[in-house]
Design a protein around this nucleic acid. Structure first.
Length: 634
RNA sequence: GCUGAUGUAGCUCAGUCGGUAGAGCACCUCAUUGGUAAUGAGGAGGUAGGCAGUUCGAAUCUGCUCAUCAGCUCCA
């Protein structure tokens, strides 16, 4: 048979050789590194005989497919271990994921933490037993009967839902058999360095209408050192948790008295105000005008906007003079009423109306998460009202704004295009047109994106920007939504050049997403060491003895005069202690003043990052810090 | 909302078999005036998330409830 390799070269091999055997002929190291392979572009077992002409790629740990095969095999080992220890458990599904793998089980009594330890030991045993994996296929009816006999109802359901022509394959290792498309490693002994991470509930097939199963999360690495490093990184990441840093740095907190309703303390307000100022400045430059609309508006408005029908579960309600009102979950109706206050000409468009609007949403209690998921938050909203011709340039302008914002903070981001959801308003044509416009804008910018089917807003499709937190979870922050529905519902118009009324189109967009979530992400991103332009205290004046107190106060006042956030630490403590505290509070600059500095009229400057910078005059320091602030250095 | 776990001073945590609460940091006082990540001594501070129950007696056992954490679902 003729085997072609990725570089285009080809060679003849004996029919029936496996990818692993071919790899071994090329080099023993290649064979050792090969986890699974790609046969004509499709993932396949490297241990199964090949016949006929094919192209082959060997996948090692560096390839996603390689890791996937390794970890998916680990998930089978997990299932086998559970079956050995708890024979009455039934199996659901167990895929590999980005950070490892999981397996869902149906077990009457929940797993305990001790069970996890036992399971882990059993997994190691299975690895040591080095059981070979075998693959076999069964016709549909036989496959169903096979799983029925094994007492695996979830597997039966999975097979029944497979397309008629699907190949139904199983993998066997020792006495354990699982329905699986593969690919896998050749034996359990090849999978090492497995670690079970956590237990959780998970709905069968991801639907809350179904039974909740028990999910065991684990991870596995080819090299022990990589596993150790991963575990270490997770530990380190926990130290960056914004909920912990928020308390330590006295930025914000959430009390039991108001679950999901965060408090911002003075230090946190500095960051918030800094972000808002930046936001105002940037939007002013881009031709946006600012609005402020009420938090509570009457029932009629929410019925008209569609929120009453499509968003009621997430809204808070109240009565005023015996009439129904709702607390706004979104700012758009306010912006729309503002648009309707007068007659717009096509010459006035696009009209870009921005609002830092406080919204309230009733989120499920289990979904709350620090500042990332709260029940009241400020969206840095903007609504653009425009003619259809302006859609493209406006979308491009908004995307440019996003890139500028995230670039300023040094964030990595992932883009998703979310399409029409089930519970939505409008016609298919409108949705298609809006979705195409968003897609075209993304393509024009060359932004890579993933399509998220059915995840749009009820009034339109959207482009979402996801940012990462300390442990790699991503959170949707920015969004750009194109809306043909609201203008229709509210009968929005503008007068065209033809003196006729026309229907404008709307863009709803937020860059930060919510100020709260953004601060959460930012806190984790910089581990609490905010860039100087946002740091709650930018410079702290530390005295060595109380002989320097007057001078310290003078320096502080001078910095404040220059618009900087400066504090003194005049306490009767040693400098080492004061430095330690300022350092832990992540103050960008510490200005040490002792007898020498008083005498020479200088400051001994210490940077939180670079340590002692030597002495400089107060004027020189102001200049240095001002430059750092102006440039928004990270 | 669902599954599981957790809930002791402002923070981080300890507390053997149910016998009536302990440390470090922070805070206050005093001494000390010291050069780049913790000076020393003393003091004050909690009725154990909340409610109910079992018991002679509960932080320790039971039930309910609230909140938090992990995940699911949902979402900015």
């Amino acid at each position: 048979m003729k085997i072609t390799f990725p570089d285009g070269s080809a060679r003849e091999y004996a029919d029936g050789m496996t990818a692993l055997e071919i790899a071994a002929e090329i080099s023993p190291r290649l064979a050792k590194a090969t986890l699974v392979c790609e046969l004509d572009g499709k993932l396949a077992d490297a241990f199964r005989p090949i016949s006929g002409d094919h192209t082959v790629r060997f996948l090692d740990w560096k390839e996603e497919g390689g890791r996937w095969g390794y970890r998916h095999t680990a998930s089978h080992i997990l299932a086998q271990a559970v079956k050995r220890l708890f024979p009455d458990v039934t199996l659901a599904i167990g895929p590999a994921i980005d950070t490892g793998f999981y397996y869902d089980f149906d077990k009457p009594e929940p797993f305990s933490a001790d069970d996890l330890t036992k399971i882990e030991e059993e997994m190691e045993r299975i690895s040591r037993e080095d059981l070979s994996l075998e693959r076999f296929e069964l016709p549909r009816e036989e496959a169903i009967r096979y799983m029925q006999e094994k007492g695996e109802p979830y597997k039966v359901e999975l097979i029944q839902d497979l397309p008629e022509d699907a190949i139904i394959s199983f993998y066997k290792q020792g006495d354990f058999v699982d329905l699986c498309a593969g690919p896998h490693m050749q034996s359990t002994g090849k999978v090492k360095n497995m670690k079970l991470m956590s237990l959780a509930g998970a709905y069968w097939r991801g639907s809350e209408k179904n039974k909740m199963l028990q999910r065991i999360y684990g991870t596995a690495f080819e090299k022990k050192a990589d596993l150790d490093e991963y575990l270490f990184r997770m530990e380190e990441a926990k130290k960056r948790d914004h909920r912990k840093l928020g308390r330590e740095l006295d930025l914000f907190d959430i009390h039991d008295e108001g679950p999901g309703f965060p408090f911002f303390y003075p230090n946190g307000m500095v960051i918030r105000n800094g972000l808002e100022n930046f936001w105002r400045e940037q939007h002013q430059k881009r031709g946006y005008k600012e609005l402020r609309t009420p938090i509570i508006l009457n029932r009629d408005l929410w019925i008209r906007s569609g929120h009453w029908d499509h968003y009621k579960n997430n809204m808070y309600f109240t009565k005023i003079d015996d009439m129904d009102y709702a607390v706004k979950p979104m700012n758009c109706p306010g912006a729309i009423l503002s648009y309707k206050r007068k007659i717009y000409s096509y010459r006035d468009l696009p009209e870009r109306l921005a609002e830092l609007g406080l919204v309230h949403r009733h989120e499920l209690s289990g979904a709350l998460h620090g500042l990332m998921r709260v029940r009241c938050f400020t969206q840095d909203d903007a609504h653009i009202f425009m003619t259809p011709e302006q859609i493209r340039p406006e979308l491009l302008g908004v995307i440019e704004k996003f890139q500028y914002f995230y670039g300023t903070f040094g964030f990595k981001y992932y883009v998703e295009l979310s399409t029409r959801p089930e519970n939505s308003m409008g016609s298919d044509e409108q949705w298609e047109e809006a979705t195409d416009a968003l897609r075209a804008a993304l393509d024009a910018c060359g932004l890579p994106y993933k399509v998220n089917e059915g995840d749009g807003a009820f009034y339109g499709p959207k482009i979402d920007f996801h940012l990462e937190d300390a442990i790699g979870r991503t959170w949707q922050c920015g969004t750009i939504q194109l809306d043909f529905q609201m203008p229709e519902r509210f009968d929005l118009t503008y007068v065209g050049a033809d003196n006729e009324k026309h229907r404008p189109v709307m863009i709803h967009t937020v860059v930060f997403g919510s100020i709260e979530r953004f601060i959460g992400i930012l806190t984790e991103h910089c581990a609490g060491a905010f860039p100087a332009w946002l740091a709650p205290v930018q410079a702290k004046v530390l005295t060595i003895t109380d002989r320097a107190n007057d001078r310290a106060a003078q320096v502080r006042d001078m910095l404040r005069e220059a618009g900087m956030r400066a504090e003194c630490d005049l306490r009767n403590e040693k400098v080492g202690f004061k430095i330690r505290e300022a350092q832990m509070q992540k103050v960008p600059y510490m200005l040490v003043i002792g007898d020498k500095e008083v005498e020479q009229g200088v400051l001994a400057v210490r940077s939180r990052r670079e340590g002692d910078l030597g002495t400089m005059t107060p004027e020189a320091f102001v200049q240095k810090l001002q430059k750092e602030i102006d440039e928004k250095q990270n």
